[in-house]
Write a protein that binds this DNA or RNA. Structure first.
Length: 413
RNA sequence: CGGGGUGUAAUACAACGGUAGUAUAUCCGCUUUGGGAGCGGACGAUCCGAGUUCGAUUCUCGGCACCCCGACCA
């Protein structure tokens, strides 16, 4: 991509209406645009990051047997009445709308009801189980207060997976496999090591759930971490009997603020019974399906990465989710510099390397500042100096380490 | 939803009730060219609606929006 042709521009100053680091940096870099409180657009660079995160999640979900679907956003109230979740008293963050004939509709904030109902057409026998279905789908939640930039918004894409199993054991086995897959995801996007599986309340779903919490001062949750066991407990269930059940000692715990980057829930038969999702077992007996649900918000994950991986100059994307791998800068207006940079861009692009090429007619300082802000892992500089040596100047964003490399070495990064 | 704060140009900020100004960005010209250059010129704004006043960006009321703290958070 030629940066001179990029749809977005960077900004020098922080937006005045944002305090969170993720929103400041992402807006300054032109990754996202704020439409209104709690509603953000993803722009070309931001969408590339977002899609890479989605790609990683998709790979991990497919690897444990997930099958991808996309359900509708518009929701039929009848299904939600059956589970007792239609009323505003039961769920206070509904966005509701109406058809022309005044019939009410909901905008989905999650999809247990429609997917359970849908599964009734396809899961009827023990031979049809287990099944794992997931989607990347836009959710709407009428939060009383949106905050923390792109971390807590009223409209957001969620990867939500639902498991359908025959027995508690079969469910539990998948639940644990999914927990492992989740940890893989967090590791792959650069949050390994500081993300903990965290015991938490199950809300109105179940007795408990497991959250995945990334330690950060920007977090809204308080957790207690057992570093030896590499697990944590959410403050909301931090009680003596819970710790005892988990076999955790109070003195082994340290408190930390954390961002909830994922959550998995055992649903039991809460929805299968409410909506009539049953199967016939080997003996012809009608049984309720055992369910679970598993959520990750790719946008929140992106915001979390920015909170954790950035410095005073800008973002530091891990290579796995960076919008581009190499940021190629040409310095100066000399013809031989321009043609050398043009040639290098073509070579890299042809070899399949993702390159953002800063071909703009700007001074060096401005290009460097933008490169630091955008946070692409490798910065390759072509200038009069580098041409004289027949090398390219390569700087790693993460470490700031600079070296002189040949075009061939750049290709094999 | 309770409490507090703020709405001025694309962005960030000024302006005693009396000609809306500065910086950045953008455009033009000249000089400059490895860490956000200099000079000259240009474009461009008071959230909406009432009220008070000779006169309102400024004061009052209502609305809307945004931010912060709390509550809430499948």
């Amino acid at each position: 991509m030629h940066q001179s042709q990029l749809f977005t521009k960077t900004r020098r100053e922080d937006p005045s209406d944002e305090t969170s680091k993720n929103a400041k940096l992402l807006i300054r870099g032109g990754f996202v645009h704020k439409e209104m409180a709690g509603v953000y657009d993803y722009l070309p660079l931001g969408l590339r990051v977002f899609n890479k995160i989605v790609g990683i999640i998709r790979e991990e979900m497919n690897a444990i047997g997930g099958q991808e679907v996309v359900l509708s956003t518009l929701q039929d109230p009848e299904l939600w009445k059956k589970s007792g979740r239609w009323s505003d008293e039961a769920v206070d963050n509904w966005f509701k709308t109406k058809l022309k004939n005044d019939a009410e509709l909901g905008l989905g904030f999650t999809h247990e009801e429609p997917l359970t109902n849908l599964a009734r057409s396809h899961i009827v026998s023990y031979k049809d189980l287990p099944r794992y279905v997931y989607q990347f789908q836009t959710k709407f939640r009428n939060e009383l207060r949106a905050k923390s930039g792109i971390m807590r918004t009223r409209e957001f894409v969620m990867k939500d997976m639902y498991s359908f199993s025959r027995s508690e054991e079969e469910f539990r086995q998948f639940y644990e496999e999914c927990a492992v897959a989740y940890m893989n995801i967090f590791k792959r996007v650069g949050l390994g090591g500081i993300t903990y599986r965290t015991f938490a309340s199950g809300g109105s779903f179940s007795k408990f759930s497991d959250e995945f919490q990334t330690v950060s001062e920007a977090g809204e949750d308080h957790i207690y971490i057992d570093d030896k066991k590499r697990i944590a407990v959410n403050k909301e269930v931090y009680k003596d009997e819970v710790l005892k059940d988990l076999g955790i000692k109070k003195n082994d715990l340290r408190e930390a603020k954390a961002i909830e980057v994922g959550n998995i829930f055992p649903l039991g038969t809460r929805f299968s019974e409410a909506l009539g999702l049953t199967y016939k077992d080997e003996n012809g007996k009608q049984m309720p399906v055992i369910m679970g649900s598993y959520g990750i918000g790719p946008g929140r994950l992106m915001g979390t990465v920015v909170e954790i991986l950035s410095d005073e100059k800008g973002i530091i994307w891990p290579e796995s989710i960076a919008p581009y791998k190499i940021h190629l800068l040409s310095l100066g207006t000399e013809k031989k510099v321009i043609s050398a940079a043009d040639g290098l861009y073509k070579t890299l692009t042809k070899a399949g390397v993702e390159v953002l090429y800063d071909d703009r007619d700007l001074r060096a300082g401005e290009k460097f500042a933008d490169a630091d802000l955008l946070g692409i892992p490798y910065r390759a500089v072509v200038s009069t100096k580098t041409i004289a040596e027949d090398k390219i100047e390569l700087t790693e964003r993460k470490t700031g380490h600079t070296s002189k490399v040949t075009a061939k070495e750049l290709l094999s990064l």
